[in-house]
Design a protein around this nucleic acid. Structure first.
Length: 103
DNA sequence: GTCCTGACGAGTA
DNA sequence: GTACTCGCCAGGA
């Protein structure tokens, strides 16, 4: 595996509870602003169970991929709600309040 | 070994 | 405002 995936995991692992990050944001953090695609692909390809909170990585819009792998979008929504993430009426994450800020 | 596809995002037409 | 294309890397067939 290339370091790209490792970097992705490293960043995603650092997302604190109650916060979400977009694929593009993660991609930008690892120095690959155009690799947002592969951020999601990396998580899909090699999700370390219990280490990588994939559910905290969402679209820039705040919504998730159509074919999620947790067991349905409902499962993810439940997980995010448990962490205190607020959902909009559209069923999207409130990126305005929950977007992960890098220190 | 080569070709194709894949959890995105931003720009252009 | 909507639709389409390009960019980028890695893994599977």
């Amino acid at each position: 595996m290339g370091q790209f995936n490792e970097q992705v995991y490293e960043v995603v692992k650092q997302i604190p509870p109650g916060r979400v990050a977009s694929y593009g944001q993660v991609a930008r953090m690892i120095g690959r602003p155009r690799n947002a695609r592969f951020v999601g692909f990396a998580l899909h390809s090699n999700p370390q169970p219990g280490i990588i909170p994939c559910h905290r990585v969402v679209f820039k819009d705040g919504s998730l991929a159509p074919g999620f792998a947790f067991g349905g979008p409902e499962a993810q929504r439940a997980l995010l709600e448990q962490e205190g993430i607020q959902f909009l009426d559209d069923g999207r994450v409130d990126m305005e309040q929950c977007c992960w800020e890098v220190y």
